[in-house]
Write a protein that binds this DNA or RNA. Structure first.
Lengths: 207, 207
DNA sequence: AAAAGTTATTGATCTAAATCAATAAAAAAA
DNA sequence: TTTTTTTATTGATTTAGATCAATAACTTTT
């Protein structure tokens, strides 16, 4: 993945958000981004540092989690072809509270805080994209909230299977458990129950 | 509360977000807002309708809640001098899923969706305010999320008392319970425990 | 292929909060 | 004031999921 290719992917992403994005705004944006690569397992952010970037993930998979008395509580996966940031830290310029690391070798394209603020102020188009992204993040978070308040663990698991189809096969089950807010044991039981419901697994042994 | 007064309150609010807000953008904004009054108990939004406004609450108190098999689950209070919207519905222009009603007689200043989009496109300053508001809402929601995942009910109650001091005295306790995600019985017990901790309530009866 | 290290399953027990039920206290209406 | 309605407390029971513990199934390394 070279810079050309990465930029072209991001450009189509931005054009989807804002079809009439001006060439000038795009060019200024493109000038300022930098490419960053992480090996599988590498830490991207850890508590104490400020998240200074919004990233577009060109390839790979990131995940964020809280470490609460020795236990990981995963709050987000960020897959290829989506953007990622510890947005709370980025916006407030306060230290992150979560770890973020790479679950696979990952290539991202970053824009840093100062450059982005400059683009926001200079180009109405960039400002608009910033608004649209913040709005989308808000909606996503609202939905996740809703799931946690009103869907039981089973339903959250079902939804995860549907909505994160492309991630399911790439991560161990205990990470899914963490993300949907249950212990690995509980998820295992949910799966056992599911398999009794439909006749997939239990079959007569003899004759 | 007349239009003049209301607008002046909103103007200072917006200037706090964006100190160099242009007079022109402000004037165009001011032209387009409308004032709306609700009696105590009046329904502002109910499931099925689209939320077409972002409101600034000049006086009064609103609250939003889901109705889940006959039970209210409160997700937000919006007090005097803050803005309010069923933002998910507003942004997506899809029907709201929550009820919103007035807990007190309330006066709000509304801007509607189409007018706001127009302002966004025409005035970079408006766009910027829109971004900042979306970002703030995201941060607020992140924090509420964090509280629900990592703070127990006791701590959520403590935080509510601190952070919503001005609301506490104005609403019944069962609404606080609902907002912090427990039953009224559970909150009553939390309070009983608190009162044993410090020696405020239990005193010797005779002599 | 064997060994070591992960990850997943299954069972037994524990626990925080929900639910159910009754009463008490406070507020509003008569 | 008395009555009625709303709100809060307290106790008993239930329950979903956590925790603890052991084993089994996979993976990876050697």
């Amino acid at each position: 993945m070279n810079r050309e290719d990465a930029l072209s992917i991001i450009k189509s992403f931005l054009l989807e958000l804002l079809p009439d994005l001006s060439e000038e705004a795009w060019n200024e944006f493109a000038k300022r981004v930098i490419i960053h690569k992480y090996k599988k397992g590498e830490v991207v952010y850890k508590p104490g540092v400020v998240c200074n970037y919004v990233s577009y993930i060109c390839s790979g998979l990131l995940r964020s989690y809280f470490l609460i008395d020795g236990k990981e509580v995963i709050t987000a996966f960020a897959d290829t072809n989506s953007y990622f940031s510890d947005y709370e830290s980025f916006l407030t310029q306060q230290p992150v509270r979560m770890y973020t690391d790479a679950l696979e070798d990952t290539v991202v394209v970053d824009i840093d805080y100062n450059n982005l603020q400059e683009l926001y102020s200079t180009y109405h188009d960039c400002e608009k994209i910033g608004r649209l992204i913040a709005e989308n993040l808000f909606i996503e978070l609202s939905n996740r909230n809703y799931d946690f308040q009103f869907d039981g663990p089973e339903k959250r698991y079902e939804k995860f299977l549907e909505q994160c189809e492309s991630i399911v096969q790439r991560i161990p089950q205990y990470m899914i458990a963490s993300y949907i807010g249950v212990t690995p044991e509980a998820l295992s039981r949910i799966r056992a129950r599911r398999n009794n419901g439909n006749g997939n697994v239990l079959v007569d042994q003899d004759q």
